[in-house]
């Protein structure tokens, strides 16, 4: 199942629902350029549970029609410029959520359930603007006790980056369990990794506990420093200076185009 980045990108088609992880969990930045080259647009991006650089770049490239998220930002580097601009002009549809609601939707899909109930949300404009969420009275109480139902989130494709996979297609995700949650809920899961190891990750209990079995993994490609400029847990830190460079450049359409065409898309060695 070992592929290359372009082969992975070809599995994303126009109009798909695409799940991408939070910036510290393992973002496959290496897939951003191939996805843009592939050009499958009208994407519905689901941020698990928030988005950052990759989401901003896919929006800037015009591939995104809907963003379902609890937030999009570049963290210490500030606001996400292409996202903010697209929201302002109405170029994308925004489905504002809250982190545990995204987790609840994925959890429902993981269990094959139509929805999951969750506390909070009542009286917020987040709920008021989500026609796809519903409020019922807790049926286990005699009266009242309103509670929100979050429908299952079923992405077509999940894409993330991890330190290693073995030759059998098992992927080591450590304690970043949101990556497993994304994979369980998604029809197809595409993974990039720093390296491939020979021995099965399921062969010893220590590595098996942090392993996403190949059952949930559709395709894998090797991409050294594949999260850059984001960091990868246990491997390398975030390149904040690069995020700041992007944040400045991407304030304008021209600056964004310049940045994306430039050599700065390659990780510094």
């Amino acid at each position: 199942m070992l592929s290359d980045l372009e082969t992975l990108a070809r599995q994303v088609e126009a109009g798909m629902r695409l799940a991408l992880p939070v910036d510290y969990a393992g973002v496959s930045m290496a897939m951003t350029k191939p996805l843009i080259a592939r050009g499958a647009g009208d994407l519905h991006v689901i941020c698990v549970p928030t988005g950052g650089l990759q989401v901003d770049q896919l929006i800037g490239a015009g591939l995104v029609s809907t963003v379902e998220t609890s937030a999009v930002s570049l963290g210490e580097a500030g606001g996400a410029p292409r996202f903010n601009q697209a929201v302002k002009t109405g170029a994308i549809r925004i489905m504002d959520a809250t982190c545990p609601a995204i987790h609840a939707g994925l959890m429902a899909a993981q269990k094959g359930s139509p929805f999951l109930p969750m506390r909070g949300l009542i009286g917020t404009d987040v709920l008021r603007n989500r026609g796809d969420w519903q409020v019922i009275d807790n049926p286990f109480e005699d009266a009242g006790d309103p509670i929100v139902l979050i429908p299952a989130i079923k992405p077509d494709v999940a894409i993330f980056h991890a330190p290693m996979a073995d030759r059998f297609g098992n992927v080591w995700i450590g304690r970043r369990r949101e990556l497993a949650a994304m994979a369980y809920a998604s029809t197809t899961t595409l993974v990039t990794v720093e390296r491939i190891v020979d021995e099965s990750l399921l062969a010893n209990e220590m590595s098996a506990a942090g392993t996403l079995p190949s059952l949930y993994v559709s395709d894998i490609a090797v991409a050294p420093k594949g999260a850059w400029p984001y960091g990868l847990w246990g491997e390398y830190p975030t390149d904040t200076a690069e995020l700041i460079r992007y944040a400045k450049a991407a304030r304008s359409d021209e600056g964004f185009a310049d940045y994306m065409s430039g050599r700065m898309l390659e990780p510094a060695q």
């Binding site: 504002d96 506390r119 917020t124």
Partner: peptide, 27 residues
């Protein structure tokens, strides 16, 4: 308000988003 100033959804100033506030504030 962690979402934006002005009308919604096309806010005149957009902030990142609500993060976990719509839940944590309740619990």
């Amino acid at each position: 308000n962690l979402v934006g100033a002005g009308a919604y959804p096309q806010s005149s100033v957009r902030w990142p988003g609500s993060f976990g506030s719509a839940y944590l504030y309740f619990v």
